[in-house]
């Protein structure tokens, strides 16, 4: 079963994430994915995350595909105008990539090429609509396609975002534009997540709750201050602060497992963003009872 079929079947789905390198040295990243083979259902490949110039998502997706691992092609609107975006979607299709996660993308000034021209010709909602149009055999201006792609389109949502209603409005727009599943920003506050999921349940669409492994109390504090929609509760910060260096990973795994367990009955899967701690993912899953 592929990701789409698993979600349809009602299976609790687990996805993880690969961030391609700055350079051509992709081998270690593929190894990390290999390490999780059989433990997660699909791998997101980020599209120059944080607006830092890196190896492309599409090529990395193809490499995973060739290894028999299921990729999710992340595509942002930051760097490409509507021609390039449509073209890349067609490229993905011929390379065998079906899952596409559409995002607006961070602004260029947050990355390492401050001088770049931010594009944002389309945004996540309009790009979803465009991708849906391609699946129906038409490009954006209505020209017929010779050969039609088939995608399983996903999008993101940020449950901790304030005002929440604004996220829900946009989520609905994304669904109307063709999104079939959602992955969320990192969740640490289960109560807030529950409220969000209650509100989002009316859409009847699969949501994979986001998990980011805490590496330290400092990281938690930093995210609280700087990452939109992320709110790590004090108790986790205290737990991380109390743990000595050797214990930290263990504590972090415990927290992640607790969160996953808490989410199990609220959503349709989880999306783990290990940010370099791929080696701990199996432990997290094991602790959480998978």
């Amino acid at each position: 079963m592929n990701l789409e079929e698993k979600l349809k079947s009602g299976k609790f789905v687990i996805t993880s994430e690969i961030g391609p390198p700055k350079g051509t040295n992709i081998a270690p990243h593929i190894e990390e994915a290999e390490y999780l083979r059989g433990k997660v259902d699909a791998f997101n490949v980020t599209d120059m995350q944080s607006s830092v110039m890196r190896l492309g998502s599409l090529a990395t997706c193809r490499l995973l595909f060739e290894k028999g691992l299921e990729p999710v092609f992340q595509l942002t609107c930051r760097d490409r105008n509507r021609l390039a975006l449509q073209s890349d979607l067609l490229s993905a299709a011929v390379l065998g990539i079906k899952n596409v996660l559409v995002l607006t993308g961070d602004h260029t000034v947050l990355g390492d090429h401050l001088q770049a021209k931010p594009v944002f010709d389309l945004d996540s909602v309009s790009l979803l609509k465009v991708a849906t149009g391609l699946m129906e055999g038409k490009d954006m201006v209505g020209n017929e396609l010779d050969g039609t792609p088939d995608f399983f389109l996903g999008a993101v949502v940020s449950p901790g975002y304030d005002p929440q209603e604004l996220q829900l409005i946009k989520m609905e727009k994304k669904i109307e534009s063709g999104a079939k599943f959602f992955q969320t920003q990192a969740v640490y506050d289960l109560a807030a997540f529950e409220t969000f999921m209650k509100a989002a349940s009316r859409f009847g669409i699969p949501v994979l709750g986001g998990i980011v492994l805490l590496k330290s109390a400092g990281m938690a504090k930093f995210m609280n201050e700087n990452v939109a929609g992320v709110n790590v509760p004090d108790k986790y910060i205290k737990m991380m602060a109390a743990a000595d260096k050797k214990e930290r990973a263990k504590v972090s795994i415990g927290i992640a497992a607790e969160l996953i367990n808490g989410m199990k009955n609220l959503c349709q899967g989880i999306h783990i963003m290990p940010l370099g701690w791929e080696k701990y993912v199996p432990a997290v899953l094991e602790t959480a009872g998978f």
């Binding site: 000034v109 401050l114 001088q115 770049a116 021209k117 931010p118």
Partner: peptide
């Protein structure tokens, strides 16, 4: 010559 868009931003 390459433009520096950050000047504008």
């Amino acid at each position: 010559n390459v433009r520096d868009y950050n000047l504008i931003i």
